[in-house]
Design a protein around this nucleic acid. Structure first.
Lengths: 340, 340
DNA sequence: TATCTTGAGGAAAACGTTTTCTAGCAAAGA
DNA sequence: TCTTTGCTAGAAAACGTTTTCCTCAAGATA
């Protein structure tokens, strides 16, 4: 069906290799007469030649494609990440194959297997982090990849992560300084790297100000809006509900807001709220949200740059770990505690 | 580097074709002894065999990949679309290569060229719609594809689109029935299919109720939040600003809200707002938004189903056009006009 | 005149699969 | 005993490129 080099060659009356050389512009150690060159170019255009990247890829051992594995592209955090990765794709050398895991470990494993089958030149992964054998395998085989937002303590791979503990610490400290003593933590997936870091920060901030941690103040385990909704409900029904909340993730906050709204609680008068969040919309919520927002553009940029370097020399383990801090932005959703 | 069929074959002492047959499970017209079969399977596992999809693709003339071209994956509308397309990917037969055009026609042309080079089995496209030659070419060559949300009147390709005019009509009618007479239209990109349909609907609703269209009420041309912001500003500074607004697109509304907020205008008391929108967040804005929301899941599902059919028989032009209606959801951002 | 360079292009292998065609051999049927 | 059938497996071509190694003539050089 599709036109091949050979067909062009036949039409022009020349060898396929010559056509290849003209079309790819490779004249090193080689030269083609101007006239012939022009004839080949014309024929290719006329015949609507579409180079077969599958064949090129097989020969060149390169797919010119990078695999991206994220939890859910519908989460603006990850969509933004993808866009910022794209921006570092100088000269549009690569295209991107995107996979969603929905935080499902088995899906991730299958996706990565598929990406390897399709011979991605490199992988950018936000890992689910329940298992690490398949990541270890990549590492052992010098397959170029960079972990994003999450990494394995026991494995020194390339990674770009956040200062989660520190970021959470700052947020909680802010609440404490506003006079809050009972501060809730709406947690995301307990097993995930960011959340564990953020919980550590939450705990150490309380400890620093000599406030005991009430386990009933820590709720939730999951990363959907529904999970946030359920977790907030649990908090709301408690007799001495926290006067302030730290919400640990982007999408969860939507559910928390819904629960608060449903319960007729007003922000920040009934409850102060700080959230890790990265939605363009945060400022337009009924009460503009005080947030810790991530430097998504920078995360994408660093990740891609490391990956490019790693792809350039796969045999050398860079083991680059870049750690970035979030931006704490105070808006209207936090207020002095009324007792103080 | 990577293990090949031949290496497995050598190790087991058998021909590569036999290995291929065992590993792909193709035993039609063929059979392999149980013992040998097991030995091959073992060897493959032990040697960590990763099939080369590039080679398979070349041989089979299939990439098992579908190209998706959208304006911007960061727009929840398109991210949702991608996810719903994925849901129709039964048995995970395909993976998806995603390209963003940013509504730039040249980018779209380049992306589609690249997708053809990489031999995508099919294409799902939200076209920029300034040029159509490259789409026509796909069509002429029986390349399987489906246009989404936008289509060319002059080209009967597969497409899944919305009843834009009708949807806008309903929204405007709602405003008119609330007593509004001066109704603004914050337009998106003038050249795009949806926007033209929506403008038609806007105009015909006004006409149906004998309200003259004031060209000053129609503002904007662009699809970013900034465009919405600028357009709303323009409306706000007018002496007789409209008492109600129809906002034509998803992301634009964020800018409009910002402008309104900045001008100290309250919704719906100073101005009623209806928007085409598809964000999970709409209900949580300072005033929950009355919206026309699209059945994204259905759009993705229909698109993928049509594409699958088209891929199954590329030589037959299905020319299927599916038209869907939006859901009009009344929330709190619209109110009776105060004059009435 | 004999040898060397240089410019122009061809031949063929290789990348890793899949699939069609062929073939050996044993058991079964005639 | 001779042919057929069924099971098992190998050989080789093909998919569409790229690239290394040739070849061959013409002009330059010694």
């Amino acid at each position: 069906m599709a036109v091949t080099l050979k067909q062009i060659a036949d039409k022009v009356g020349v060898h396929p290799s010559t056509v290849s050389r003209v079309l790819t512009g490779r004249h090193e150690n080689f030269s083609v007469g101007e006239a012939l060159r022009a004839r080949i170019l014309d024929a290719a255009k006329e015949m609507n030649y579409v180079p077969n990247e599958l064949a090129r890829g097989l020969r060149l051992q390169k797919s010119h494609t990078i695999g991206i594995v994220v939890p859910d592209i519908l989460n603006p955090l990850y969509a933004g990440l993808v866009r910022s990765i794209e921006k570092e794709n100088i000269n549009e050398r690569y295209s991107f194959l995107i996979c969603n895991t929905d935080e499902d470990q088995e899906k991730e494993i299958k996706h990565i297997e598929m990406l390897r089958n399709k011979r991605m030149d490199g992988l950018l992964i936000v890992p689910v982090q329940k298992k690490m054998d398949h990541i270890k395998a990549l590492w052992a085989e010098n397959y170029p990849f960079v972990l994003i937002l999450r990494r394995f303590e026991k494995l020194t791979t390339n990674a770009v992560v956040m200062e989660n503990a520190q970021d959470a610490y700052k947020a909680v400290e802010h609440l404490i300084k506003l006079g809050h003593r009972r501060i809730g933590f709406v947690r995301g997936r307990r097993t995930s790297y960011e959340i564990q870091g953020r919980e550590r920060g939450y705990r150490s901030a309380l400890a620093a100000y000599h406030i005991a941690v009430d386990p009933r103040c820590i709720v939730g385990d999951g990363c959907s809006a529904d999970d946030g909704y359920a977790a907030a409900k649990e908090l709301i029904k408690q007799s001495n509900m926290p006067s302030a909340l730290l919400v640990s993730e982007n999408v969860i906050i939507v559910g928390v807001l819904e629960a608060l709204f449903e319960a007729g609680l007003s922000i920040p008068y009934d409850v102060s709220v700080v959230s890790f969040a990265d939605m363009t919309f945060s400022p337009f919520f009924s009460t503009p949200l005080t947030t810790i927002s991530m430097p998504i553009d920078q995360i994408g940029k660093e990740s891609m740059q490391i990956l490019l370097k790693q792809m350039a020399s796969p045999e050398i383990h860079l083991g680059r770990i870049k750690t970035l801090s979030g931006n704490f932005i105070i808006r209207k959703s936090t207020h002095k505690a009324f007792g103080s």
